[in-house]
């Protein structure tokens, strides 16, 4: 007699012990959350350490300037490299994690446009300040305020409160940097963004284990 095995029975993963089921459920959930996480804790923590190193390095080189002249020619490549590596790594990891995922968690074209316009607006503010004779080097954290607030608004509209808090925290770092003076702003940016990113890493890790 021909016998076609039922793929849902024991030999193909059929009924099993509740303890095994609990272990499998836990393991599968953790693995899936890790694989689908667009901003994994390790990436956030690494970005936190890198931004601390990049801005901290600039702060060390400008803190002794009297009068303040801004980052040296040697500092600029460090800062640009950090921005490029940060952007490339973030996009690559997010693309890999969200491959094959569709639905509400993806940003809509309108939301992407708002986020992009926020950076354009930040660049426009810097250009206006430069035209008024105020160099970016004197107020480096200005660039964080508009994108931070925009990101908070976008994520609040999506009821993503962890990301919303992160956006607001970035904007607060930008605002506090304005009060810290030209050299101190670099220290505020490095320490503030490091705290925001490491805090976000901890929150994501906690969420994944919950």
């Amino acid at each position: 007699m021909n016998h076609t095995p039922d793929p849902t029975t024991a030999e193909n993963g059929g009924p099993f012990d509740p303890k095994q089921a609990a272990a499998l459920l836990d393991q599968t959930t953790q693995q899936a959350r890790r694989k689908l996480q667009a901003t994994p804790p390790w990436l956030l923590a690494t970005r936190g350490v890198l931004v601390l190193a990049a801005c901290g390095g600039i702060w060390l080189s400008v803190r002794g300037q009297h009068p303040y002249r801004g980052p040296t020619a040697a500092d600029i490549p460090v800062l640009v490299s950090f921005i490029v590596i940060n952007f490339a790594a973030t996009v690559a990891v997010a693309r890999r994690a969200t491959a094959g995922v569709s639905g509400k968690s993806r940003l809509s074209p309108a939301q992407i446009t708002v986020a992009a316009l926020a950076w354009v607006a930040a660049a426009a503010v810097l250009a206006v300040l430069a035209a008024a004779g105020v160099s970016y080097g004197h107020y480096p954290t200005t660039v964080l305020i508009i994108p931070g607030v925009a990101w908070a608004a976008i994520t609040a509209a999506r009821a993503e409160w962890r990301r919303c808090v992160m956006g607001l925290a970035v904007a607060v770092v930008g605002a506090v940097g304005l009060l810290a003076g030209p050299a101190g702003a670099w220290a505020v940016a490095g320490i503030g963004l490091c705290i925001v990113l490491v805090g976000a890493a901890a929150a994501v890790a906690w969420q994944q284990r919950a």
Binding site: L25, G100, K104
Partner: peptide, 26 residues
């Protein structure tokens, strides 16, 4: 309560509500 289906359901549950996964990624 079958290993394979538990893995399927747990994996899909890791997505936010309203999200879907392509067959090949799953």
């Amino acid at each position: 309560h079958v290993p394979t289906r538990l893995k399927i359901v747990a994996t899909l549950a890791a997505l936010p509500e309203g999200d879907a996964l392509t067959f090949t990624r799953l």
